[in-house]
Amino acid sequence: MKTIINSRDVLSGLLFIALGLLFGWQTQDLPMGTAVRMGPGYFPLVLSGLLGLLGLIILINGLRFPGEMPSGIAWRAVLIITGAVVFFGFGVRPLGFLPALGISVFVSALASRLFTFRTALLNTAVMVVFAWAVFIKGLGLPLPLLGPWLGGY
């Protein structure tokens, strides 16, 4: 879809400006020092300013030239995949390595439109066995198989 402005440039310009402001604001409490005796805040502030400036250039360019809208966003995949990863981080200690891994694999399989219950279950089983064989048995990683919530330690 063509638009009068290049909305990808406009949006990325805005994103960079926002990040520049965020990081610039974060350097507020840091001692600046001088160019000769730089404090811990000097380099970060210069870079944050530069990022904001570059964002502004991209934004202005985007307003001047026509371009395309970003194509459709895969919201379903965004939510499910991120959720699966976060779940692994949350579950690996209380639930243990293998249960957390299995649930994450199964959940992330839901992100596909070609999801079938059988394939996903099979996939989960294969991954759990594989991870157990390689990482626990083979490499001896110190990861608890079952966490305290499931009767392990």
Binding site: P148, W149, L150, G151, Y153
Partner: peptide, 10 residues
């Protein structure tokens, strides 16, 4: 229930 479970195996 979960916290009970957590308390049990120790």
């Amino acid at each position: 229930a979960l916290s009970l479970l957590a308390a049990l195996p120790h």
